[in-house]
Nucleic acid binder design. Structure first.
Length: 265
DNA sequence: AAGAATGTTATGTA
DNA sequence: CTACATAACATTCT
């Protein structure tokens, strides 16, 4: 589930329900061990997202670094008596008003501010952050011989884009994933940045990835219901021109493109 | 009910 | 130094 929009949404949700409060932290199966005990009863100050990374800032400069990986999920329950945690829960945060269960995480560790800086130094600009420098993205792309389809998935090039946004963003830009970055005009790369920014912001708002523009929603759609809100991702036919969608492996991930709307030139 | 999936890193190769 | 393949790890859904 998680691309950048999910992580920023989680940060927003945690700030809304837990920031500024004393939080009970538990690790039901002991999967977050003594570290949960260390956090338990502290005040959570602020939660921040950079790309797909989440940083919880607790009292005394204690920071929890979280990464959702492919399977990570955050489930919120309102009210004073949440259901029993299921056995995959890594960390449960709780106040009298709400409980949040985190599962499937690939990273969940205590770090200090220097380690936070080290992680963030490896991340490229995040279109959802005010401090993003889009020119860094444009420069990296236009200088690289790597294919644009692999560049936009590289978190040091742009932070927050995953496999769905890759497929849909490149589709909207009319760029074929196999094109080398350096073959693209700077203008088109700026445009691509804008598209990712808009898609990610929409994703945060909607809590789901829905990329189809209003003018395309009325088109007849033969695709399965689950891909109704997509142009090419996991579709057999292009949402707009109905050409068969190409599907192939790129760096171990399935890549999708419409050969007609995304010409290879 | 096996298999695929909105992810990253470490390691080896050319 | 760059690019890319592979394996390992995480869990849920169909």
């Amino acid at each position: 589930m998680p691309e950048g929009h999910t992580i920023h949404r989680a940060a927003r949700q945690q700030n809304r329900h837990f920031a500024g409060r004393v939080v009970e932290v538990t690790s039901p199966q002991g999967r977050f061990g003594q570290e949960a005990a260390l956090l338990d009863g502290r005040v959570l100050h602020n939660v921040e997202a950079h790309g797909k990374h989440l940083f919880q800032h607790w009292d005394d400069d204690v920071v929890v670094h979280i990464h959702f990986g492919l399977f990570g999920r955050a489930r919120l329950q309102r009210g004073p008596d949440p259901a029993e945690p299921r056995d995959t829960i890594r960390m449960r945060m709780r106040t009298p008003a709400a409980a949040l269960d985190l599962s499937g995480l690939t990273i969940c560790r205590l770090v200090d501010p220097e380690q936070v800086a080290r992680v963030r130094a490896r991340l490229g600009p995040d279109p959802l952050r005010a401090d993003a420098r889009p020119e860094d993205f444009v420069a990296r792309v236009t200088r690289s011989t790597a294919r644009i389809g692999t560049l936009v998935m590289d978190q040091s090039v742009i932070a927050g884009v995953g496999n769905v946004y890759r497929a849909e963003g490149l589709y909207l830009a009319g760029i074929h994933p196999e094109l080398p970055g350096r073959d693209l005009d700077g203008d088109r790369v700026w445009e691509l940045w804008g598209i990712f920014g808009r898609l990610l912001a929409d994703g945060v708002k909607a809590g789901a990835i829905r990329t189809v523009a209003p003018e395309h929603r009325g088109l007849p759609d033969t695709g399965p219901a689950r891909s109704r809100h997509r142009y090419v991702y996991r579709r057999s036919h292009c949402r707009v021109c109905t050409a068969p969608v190409q599907r192939w492996d790129l760096q171990g991930r399935t890549c999708y493109a419409c050969p007609r709307c995304q010409p290879l030139d």
